[in-house]
Amino acid sequence: MANPSKRVSAAPARQRLSIPKAYKMYVGGAFIRSESGRYYQVSGMTKGSADAEVVNIPLGSRKDARDAVLAGKAALHGWSSRTAFNRGQILYRLAEVLESRHEELVTSLVRAGATERDAIDEVNASVDRAVWYAGLADKISALVASHNPVSGPHFGFTLPEAMGLVAVLAPESPALLGLVSTILPVIVSGNTTVVVAGERDPRTAVIFCECLATSDLPGGVVNVLTGRAQDLGPQLAKHREVNALEAWTPDAALRTSLERDGAGSVKRVKTHDAQGIAALRDEQRGQGLTYVERFLELKTIWHPAGI
């Protein structure tokens, strides 16, 4: 591999100097740096990437988490009140955009250490999973809702609704399939989300955000922070405006503390260990209604029937 410093700063004559990308977090539909000004570095490079060997990634702060929560909350009403069909169309559009960036996503995964074969498989699986959830959007109600045959002259039914703002601590790996598998089941039903991307390969997460930003998804529905799950997770778990939290981490102590922190606001906290994360790679076990149902509220409505 070429000497990276040469590649960035001292291109030989006639060779074009590349333009490396600044990687930013995705909040409220905009790409931003951390308000803290802090950053951390990830390394690794691959053929086809213009980036330097070492790249600076925003280190999301407590206040970034707060701002992301506000953005997610602001987007909630608009997103949850769209028709299920429309949400399905937007997720399908996301699948299209992911497919169109196939090569870039593969390059990014390889740069973080995947073999090319595995990277291609992961991108394929991610696109297919996006298509699966796109098609689920307007079926959830049929699967979850009910008419309730109550005793007495009443018309009663139970409907699923979005739970609200769901925080997701995404798995470190698989970097792309992990994001698709944990974000889509949350937003397909109308929730909005604040996601902490895995610390190891945030660049793939940012490219994924660029896909989100160009797929008709309204700003604020998905907000992605980069940084450390153990810093941002507890902030999100304690934040009273966050309705639910799902954490995908092998760190048992972190899982326990998130569950404990969430209790203060009766937060719906679901944690997954390494085994749960591994299941995401499985075509069947990695997707399903179960992932969606966790972040639905059920509303039962009664009305008398009479004259």
Partner: peptide, 11 residues
């Protein structure tokens, strides 16, 4: 138009 109704079939 009602209140405090409960039924085993009603979540």
């Amino acid at each position: 138009n009602t209140f405090n109704k409960f039924d085993p079939s009603s979540p």
